[in-house]
Write a protein that binds this DNA or RNA. Sequence first.
DNA 1: TATAATTTTTAGCTTTGTCTAAATTTAATT
DNA 2: AATTAAATTTAGACAAAGCTAAAAATTATA
Lengths: 215, 215
Amino acid sequence: MTFSEENYLKTIYHLTAVSDADISTNAIAEKMETKASSVTDMLKKLSEKDLVNYVKYQGVSLTEKGKLAAKMIVRKHRLWECFLVEKLDFSWDEVHEIAEQLEHIKSEKLINKLDDFLGNPTEDPHGDPIPDANGRIIKVEKQLLSEFEKNQMGICVGVKDTSSDFLKYLDKQEIALGSQIEIIEKESFDSSFRIRVGNKEITVSNKIASNIYIK
Amino acid sequence: MTFSEENYLKTIYHLTAVSDADISTNAIAEKMETKASSVTDMLKKLSEKDLVNYVKYQGVSLTEKGKLAAKMIVRKHRLWECFLVEKLDFSWDEVHEIAEQLEHIKSEKLINKLDDFLGNPTEDPHGDPIPDANGRIIKVEKQLLSEFEKNQMGICVGVKDTSSDFLKYLDKQEIALGSQIEIIEKESFDSSFRIRVGNKEITVSNKIASNIYIK
DNA sequence: TATAATTTTTAGCTTTGTCTAAATTTAATT
DNA sequence: AATTAAATTTAGACAAAGCTAAAAATTATA
């Protein structure tokens, strides 16, 4: 499988997680920052290889084979992110780009040894689950901070937006995986939140609160 | 720089280490298992980028820029090999193929952090030197076992042939980096050697002896 | 339900890196 | 020195993956 094919599968996998319905050509093109015509070409190719179910004009979904392949790429990506953060001391906003490259390294033995070396983690540095060697995923029930009400509290277990900008913002506010967060006030006007993180009180917008997972 | 460009630079670098003179198109083609015409095309491209000195029909050499780039690829390859053997517990005959992929990962920060994580090794698992971040190489004076005479002894510090077959043979004979080797007898008829490794005596052909470095 | 707007696909072109076959240059040999 | 042999380069073609522009299908709207 080529790098490009792997990137398409991964993108379709991630889009599927959100919407469930068949994925449109345009949605893929937008996410991959490419043109719809390029996507059409690739979908034909992936369909030939039985990795996706593709019907002209009707969108696309992953076959079981394609889903497993996509999960293996995600597995590699997230394990490498763990390695970068835990062993090489990268911060969580720096690892995505490098993992985008490392996820294409081909060696099952390598990835399984890496998995063991890291102590078989179940989540990456952003709180996203790591599929095991068979593609199984342990789902952790988690809620967005924005869905919480006044006086509730919980632990930050992940982020929805993993962009460098957002992660740097969280670093600045000293919000990290494992941070205890308590809702002090929910402003009904703009749905912003007054929260306590550790022993500091801060105000976060609804957009921020909609990208932090709490358990 | 593309993967392909990097592979050509690396090949020219390795061939230069052996012969010193300008490298021929055919030599590159043979080593890379490709066709001379493909090599010609790439040499033009690398020449355009000032990575090689190329004169039609006369062969090529690396420019300073090209040499540095090649050394950085070799650095990455050898550091990843160290990682695979020391941290992930691969054997020395398994790592080359995977390192061939990992050497193309682009991130200076990554490779320097990996270097530190490994304790800034100066040699890879086959005894080959690892260039530092500036391309400097610490040369260890070493001799081929085949150049030794009766009753001399030394420590195995590297191998010339790093093929999986040869390394597996060495494993079988319990010859590893750091093994003490003593020449008991040199057979003048076929230049084979009777040697002691640890406390075992074995006979090795001249071909074997010509691929083991001793200090 | 026609028509307009949007989405998707097709057709044809580009680049990268490869190949084969033919042409050219260099080296070797008589 | 002439001719043959070997090495190298050129010319032209191909596959992968991308693009633009035009055509076709679907969806939305009046």
